[in-house]
C-alpha cells in the first residue's frame, strides 16, 4: 500500500544543513495500523509529512497504491491528497469561520465530484457517527477540544481515503478524551479497513498498533 525508499529530508539552518530524515525505507501493508514513535525532533513528523505529500523530500520516493506521489504535478498531488489521504493533525485544525458540517464537507467541496446535497448529507452522517449529530451548525469555538478532534476525524473520512495519517492527534487532550479519540481512529481502521499511520511519542497508544516503527535521529532503529 505504502512504500518509502531512501527517503531523506534536509533542512537548512543557520548552523548548516540538518537531516531531519536521513534515509528511510518503509513498507506498510493495506488496512494495517502502524505507529511511528520517537522522541521530539527524531524526524517522525517530517517522515509523516513526506508520506502524506505535504513536504517534498530532499531525496527518495514515496509510493501509495502504486503512485509515485512526488512524481505528480502540483494539482495532481493536491487531488491525490484530497481523495486518497485523510489527515488528523496534532492541533485543532478546523477553520474557525466554518460550522462543523462545513469543515467536514470542505475537502469534498474542493474537488467536487458529487452534488452539494450529497456531500453535506455524508458530512452530517459522519458527524453523527462521531457523536456530533447535535452540533452540525456549531462553530469550532463552540465545542470542546475532544469534539473538535472528532470533527477532524470526520473530515478525514469525507472522501473515503485509503490512508489516514494522524500526527500526534491527542497530544493536547486529557486522558479520557485521548482514549475516546483513539477508539474512533481504531474503529475507522478496523471497520472500514482504512490504513492508519499514527505518529506519537506515547508508548501506550503505540501499544495497540500492529506494527511499531521506532525512529531516532532520522533513521529507523527498530
Amino acid at each position: 500500500m505504502l512504500s518509502c525508499r531512501g527517503l531523506r529530508k534536509d533542512y537548512v539552518t543557520e548552523r548548516g544543513e540538518v537531516a531531519a530524515v536521513a534515509g528511510i525505507d518503509l513498507d506498510v501493508a493495506a488496512g494495517r495500523y502502524t505507529a511511528i514513535i520517537g522522541r521530539s525532533g527524531s524526524g517522525k513528523s517530517s517522515l509523516m509529512a513526506m508520506i502524506g505529500g505535504l513536504s517534498r523530500p530532499s531525496q527518495g520516493q514515496v509510493t501509495v497504491d502504486g503512485t509515485d506521489i512526488w512524481g505528480l504535478c502540483e494539482n495532481d498531488l493536491a487531488a491525490f491528497r484530497n481523495r486518497r489521504i485523510g489527515f488528523v493533525f496534532q492541533f485543532a485544525s478546523l477553520l474557525p469561520t466554518l460550522r462543523l458540517v462545513d469543515n467536514v464537507a470542505l475537502p469534498a467541496m474542493l474537488h467536487r465530484d458529487r452534488a452539494r446535497s450529497a456531500i453535506y448529507s455524508r458530512a452530517a452522517s459522519l458527524l453523527a457517527q462521531m457523536g456530533l449529530g447535535d452540533h452540525l451548525d456549531a462553530y469550532p469555538s463552540e465545542v470542546s477540544a475532544g469534539e473538535q478532534r472528532r470533527a477532524v476525524i470526520a473530515r478525514a473520512l469525507i472522501n473515503e481515503p485509503a490512508l489516514i495519517l494522524a500526527d500526534e492527534p491527542t497530544s493536547d487532550l486529557d486522558e479520557q478524551t485521548e482514549i475516546e479519540i483513539m477508539d474512533e481512529l481504531l474503529a475507522v481502521n478496523r471497520e472500514r479497513g482504512t490504513t492508519l499511520i499514527l505518529v506519537t511519542h506515547n508508548l501506550a497508544l503505540a501499544g495497540q498498533a500492529e506494527r511499531i516503527v521506532h525512529i531516532a535521529h532520522g533513521v529507523i532503529v527498530a
Binding site: N82, L95, P107, L110
Partner: peptide, 16 residues
C-alpha cells in the same frame, strides 16, 4: 499560514 497550509493539505489547489 496555518489555515492556508491546512487548506492545501486537505487538497486545495494553488489556484484555489
Amino acid at each position: 499560514r496555518g489555515e492556508l497550509g491546512l487548506l492545501k493539505a486537505i487538497g486545495a489547489r494553488r489556484g484555489q
